[in-house]
Design a protein around this nucleic acid. Structure first.
Lengths: 213, 213, 213, 213
DNA sequence: CTATAACCGAGACGGTACGTCAGGTCTTCGC
DNA sequence: GCGAAGACCTGACGTACCGTCTCGGTTATAG
């Protein structure tokens, strides 16, 4: 999206890209996304709000979705927080709840919009995957890897599928609204995802722990 | 969408609704949806293709999404086939694979588009839920209920969450494309969903069965 | 245009024409013409206001202009009043002022609208001419004929042209608004029209009369 | 209509107005006006024919009538020809016939349409008056002023009314079609208009001249 | 200290689709 | 069969954005 200028020869003649304009576009887009769904966003309105020529936007971004994704990422400098409680289940619960909280927030609600946009824009789908989704999944995968090392789940567990067992239900509920996402629900989702891949030993430990209550 | 006129008194004065026009709209829409994503569909093009006035469409449907949903449902008169193999896991595998096959087909690919559309149109979201999603979920819920009766899963299992454990990963993968949906993957998803809620007895049986192989 | 029903055999099968409907259409049209120019009138709105089906209007009138003309004529049952003061000039002044007063009134302002409509509807132009304009001109022509008999104007005067000398300026001013139509102006128009065709004798009499003042 | 930019500093930012588009619109409109009455003209058809976006038309003109008037004026760059034969009556006859010929021509027939349009569009009425009618009347008024100087008509003659005596009958006949506009008719109209305001001396001279024949 | 080059804002351009309105035709029911 | 009701296709309305295209001006590096 943005040119990785740093490594580039900066010697090219001519006026360099205006950082003010870029920032103004990003900020205007972020604001607009709080007022309307991505679908209703228009390049024209972004340009108007940012006090920028339309051409400037077309020059640096491929589509309004690209601008929006850029704005979304910029607003999310906060690193992904990966919990490490020592308990796989608790890590999952914490993570799921944290993600849920974010996706339900004003800023995070854009996530579903991006997934929606991806349905009719293959190019954006790939970008979204590479720029946002994959990195985040890579970051949280450690939870499952630690669980394997702790022998809580089988060594041959496919973390990708295991992750979808956790996040899939969340995203489905977010997008269709067919069920709530209360604390209780997220715990059940996490628990099911956990028991679905837990080793026999971890299973037994879980049963023992819950029966004691 | 359309009023269920059949039982209604047909006494209303004036020319009755043209069934030809309605059918033409539905057919044209279905065709167009095979050529382009829902997002790129236009009322104008539907009208053109169907040989129908725009007004006629605006009169009977609220939005292009509504027309598309109608066309989608009409094309799917085939009842939801709910497997009953006697084994909960096999039922799930069969169901998941059947749904996956459909959603990956030309006709079924519209499903994700509807979910996408719902992200920026609350009214349609509700309609989609009530007209399509809820009925389908109601139909397949019997798989889980049978499993409870057979004591394969705990009596206090929440079928809604259990269903999301099965379908959530599928939909997430369909929409984001971050992972494949091969036969092997669907089996793993189903297995994890199964083990996540299986009773201790069912768990043991599953372990025994797999270790024998 | 208007059905000359009275002489018609009424024996035709089926429901006879509804006089209520006809009246309602005429009344609604008259009302609407007070609220908007003829150009902005719509058959749809007339039907709505009259509580009548569109078809009923299309059946009995050729166009909205025809309805409007009908309404206009019905509202003008008052016979054309032709002054007879004994003096040709005074007759003309009186007539011109009376016509001016009417055409400037709410009801009479429709006249210019009809003339306007006629510019793009040849059929209506003929109707308007025959139904409204010609009869009125025939009625007032007597003023000129009397003047000929009184030897105020030459026997070979063409009354048609003479009438246009009187009414042409009025209508031009009404339609273009390039000049007022005060009492003084109408008198000058009439005077010029008079002197333009007056016999030498009448001319001398007029000069004598005015110089005495 | 269009801003008289020529003397204006051209500092306004942005792409300048396209003269090609403007010309294309004017030409297309002029063509269309030869094929249909102003009333049946549509902005859409003008845009289509001119190969121009609708918005471009809406941006620079207030209504289709404004476009048409512009086209009409552009087509009439030919200066108003004001005759100067030395004889007031002959000047009037010549002028009237020249105007009549034009208004009856394909191009000139639009005049009545403008007058018609003015009946339902006050804004256009004012524009038409200022842009077309007033300037033309100003140009020909000199005929009457010369006549005053030559003592053919009274010094206190109101030229405005005198002009209406000449042009009013023409326009009335043009618009209503209740009488022809032959050479003979135009001469009579002019003669009546002349005698209506001629001085006693001019009157006598006219009588003498005609009796000689 | 120019010259060249790329950038920028502004905004006009040819288009496409929007959702609305009315036109004129048709089809039904009830009187 | 007439009249109301109202659905139908058609096509123009005026608006909003699309993505492209000039403009005048600005800000860099290269010579």
């Amino acid at each position: 999206m943005q040119p990785a200028v740093s490594l580039q020869r900066n010697k090219s003649a001519g006026r360099p890209r205006s950082t003010e304009s870029e920032a103004a576009v990003i900020i205007a887009t972020a604001e607009l996304l709080k007022e309307m769904p991505l679908r209703d966003l228009t390049i024209e309105e972004i340009a108007r709000r940012a006090g920028v020529g339309k051409q400037t936007i077309y020059k640096w971004w491929k589509s309004k979705s690209a601008v929006a994704l850029d704005a979304f990422c910029k607003a999310m400098l906060t690193e992904v927080e990966v919990p490490d409680t020592g308990s796989f289940l608790e890590d999952m619960v914490k993570q799921l709840r944290s993600v849920t909280r974010f996706y339900k927030s004003a800023a995070g609600s854009a996530f579903c919009q991006f997934l929606a946009e991806a349905q009719s824009d293959g190019e954006f789908k790939r970008t979204f995957l590479n720029v946002f989704l994959k990195p985040r999944r890579d970051a949280v995968r450690v939870i499952w890897e630690r669980a394997i090392q702790r022998n809580e789940i089988a060594a041959d567990t496919d973390p990708e599928i295991a992750m979808d067992n956790l996040y899939g239900p969340l995203i489905f509920r977010l997008m269709s609204g067919h069920g709530s996402l209360s604390e209780s629900v997220t715990r059940q989702i996490a628990r099911n995802a956990f028991l679905g891949i837990a080793t026999e030993k971890a299973h037994a430990a879980y049963r023992k722990r819950t029966s004691e209550r």
